[in-house]
Design a binder for these strands. Structure first.
Length: 549
RNA sequence: GCGGCGGUAGCUCAGCAGGACAGAGCAGCGGACUUCUAAUCCGCUGGUCGGGGGUUCGAAUCCUCCCCGCCGCGCCA
């Protein structure tokens, strides 16, 4: 709806320009806000901006602008200070509801994406251990963002980059082999930095079943075979966790496939462009010209490529697939990595501004007030699976989005485990279930609530609480737009809590199933609007909307 | 030391592209279920927006310095 007023204001400014005032229209950002109720429904501050250019009083500029505005949906325009406040006709809100009932789950689907192709890469956790709670946050933010992008007309590819090559993976195989020897009573030495988690024993047991022959193989070969096998087992497990979180990927990209050919070609390209040099037997990338603190190794002195080298090749591959833009969702601990990756992309001749990197801050697990540490190497980690079993998908997804992603999140397990109050997801879901319950009651009592066969007399929706709800429904598309523009899916969550709150208040004060047919139909129409938006809002963050609770 | 992100009510956090008197939830206190699900609602209490300077008609929001917390700074990934 903001867009509607934006264009009205734009039109007025245009008329000013036509009347000969020296204003550069493009230099004036048109900001539409929802002011305090007492001022109006929508407001703009453009008069302040223009007054600075024209050196006139904001109030006078506002007056001039107001004279140029005529719109059938506006009931009253007021100038206060320098603000221009619009009060909208009641019919305007009714039109919003009418539109929601007609468009249903399509309501709020803007077309800002225009079919542009977006690649969003997220999670990409190493297949050397189970997903933990921190991965979960990135997964939820990434997937919700993907849903929002789709909602506004982008063609989205969800991608998972599997680090199935290199030292860590070898260490995984080595750890499993050691446990296999241990379980069979054989002689073994556990690798120094090996993975100590309990899941390694699980894998070892599986391997004893499926691959007992590796025990008789030469160690290096055994490790290689086990590593490859274990990565697949881990990915099955990771995918299982993600699926239960409501997340599926379109593309799984294996780092292994980059080895030899693509990494080699990538480094050759960098060499050709003069961005590499040799030092201490290693090949380095000149990342300092791109703002990095120091240059980075691509090929170690032992001839093996670093993770960075394959990551450059990976990004090169992605850019060759030619998306309109790219989003990487990373843990905040990778922030130091941005400069060199973007630098490498630029060095390869691609437009690095097409890549946005989203950093997701750490999740601090708290149990009964005490912090729980998350270290992959230590035994006790809190896995995403454990949390899924405890609180379920809906609560996890919702709670992860009750904080903006660049703020640390304290995830209190003791609270999230409670299936009662305190858990905000229930509050929103309950609003949805309550509305469904109203419909069920109507059926039982044989009350006609059919919105398709009855004429909806919108003017009967006239209580202050009802108009407040309509206004809230009207800003849903603005919320979606803001989510996408700022890459901030958490705004949906806060919006839904506000909408649910308005509804619960209303529900407690007014009766929907009135005997009067017209009034009842009108109120059901309002409820249906709320229900549609809640359901769609929840869908966008991957949370279910139960009909019964 | 350098860099990133935070520092808003007792606690956990919002605050829309700088805007009109700083909001919500929880906790605390007091109320509302013979009436569409009380997982709800209503009322009250509660803040020098970490601190100093600056830009602006206007700053929680932008710039700068300082303080505190977490994280990163590998020929690890």
């Amino acid at each position: 709806m903001k867009q509607y007023f934006r264009s009205i204001v734009e039109g007025a400014i245009e008329k000013l320009v036509e009347s000969g005032l020296p204003i550069d229209r493009s230099s004036i950002p048109i900001i539409i806000e929802y002011p305090d109720k007492k001022y109006g429904d929508y407001s703009t501050n453009v008069a302040f901006t223009i007054s600075r250019i024209l050196k006139k009083k904001p109030y006078d500029v506002a007056q001039i602008l107001v004279d140029k505005i005529h719109d059938p949906n506006i009931e009253k325009i007021e100038v206060s200070g320098g603000f221009i406040n619009f009060r909208v006709k009641r019919d305007f809100w009714y039109m919003v509801l009418e539109r929601i009932l007609k468009e249903r789950e399509k309501y709020g689907s803007l077309n800002v994406g225009q079919g542009k192709r977006v690649n969003i890469e997220f999670v990409s956790a190493n297949p050397t251990g189970p997903l933990h709670v921190g991965h979960g946050r990135g997964a939820v933010v990434g997937d919700s963002l993907a849903r929002l992008l789709e909602k506004v007309g982008f063609e989205v590819t969800r991608e998972y980059y599997i680090n199935d090559a290199g030292k860590q993976v070898k260490l995984l195989g080595e750890s499993i082999l050691a446990r296999m020897y241990e379980l069979t009573g054989g002689e073994h030495t556990f690798p120094e930095d090996g993975y100590k988690g309990k899941y390694i024993y699980d894998l070892a047991k599986m391997a004893l079943n499926e691959k007992p022959h590796v025990l008789d193989m030469e160690k290096e070969e055994a490790i290689e075979e086990l590593s490859f096998w274990a990565v697949n087992r881990m990915m099955e497990r990771i995918n299982n966790d993600l699926r239960d979180l409501g997340i599926e990927f379109d593309v799984y990209f294996s780092e292994r496939t980059l080895y030899n050919e693509e990494i080699k070609r990538t480094i050759e390209e960098l060499e050709k462009k003069g961005y590499t040099y040799e030092k201490d037997g290693a090949i380095w990338f000149k990342s300092t010209p791109f703002g990095d603190e120091k240059d980075r190794v691509l090929i170690r002195s032992d001839g093996t490529p670093t993770y960075f080298a394959s990551d450059i090749a990976y990004h090169r591959n992605k850019f060759l697939r030619n998306y309109d833009f790219y989003i990487n969702v990373w843990g905040a601990d990778h922030h130091g990595y941005i400069k060199r990756v973007k630098g490498a992309i630029k060095a390869l001749g691609f437009d690095d501004s097409k890549l946005d990197i989203l950093l997701i801050q750490m999740v601090n697990l708290v149990r009964n007030g005490k912090p729980v540490t998350m270290s992959k190497r230590e035994g006790e980690i809190v896995t995403l699976r454990w949390l899924l079993d405890e609180v379920g998908k809906d609560a996890i997804r919702f709670i992860f989005l009750t904080r903006k992603q660049d703020a640390h999140l304290d995830f209190d397990i003791s609270i999230a485990t409670k299936q009662t109050e305190e858990n905000p997801v229930f509050y929103v879901q309950y609003a949805h279930a309550r509305i469904c319950s109203i419909y069920r009651t109507a059926m039982e009592k044989n009350l006609d609530i059919d919105l398709t066969r009855n004429e909806i007399k919108y003017s009967l929706i006239s209580e202050e609480e009802e108009i407040e709800i309509l206004k809230k429904l009207a800003i849903f598309p603005d919320i979606i737009e803001a989510c996408v523009k700022n890459y901030e899916p958490h705004r949906i969550t806060f919006y839904l809590m506000e909408l649910a709150s308005l509804f619960h208040s209303y529900y407690n004060r007014f009766k929907v199933l009135e005997q009067n047919d017209d009034l009842r139909i009108a109120r059901v129409a309002l409820c249906e609007g709320v229900r549609i938006v809640i359901k769609e809002g929840l869908r966008l963050i991957g949370v279910s909307a139960p009909e019964v609770m």
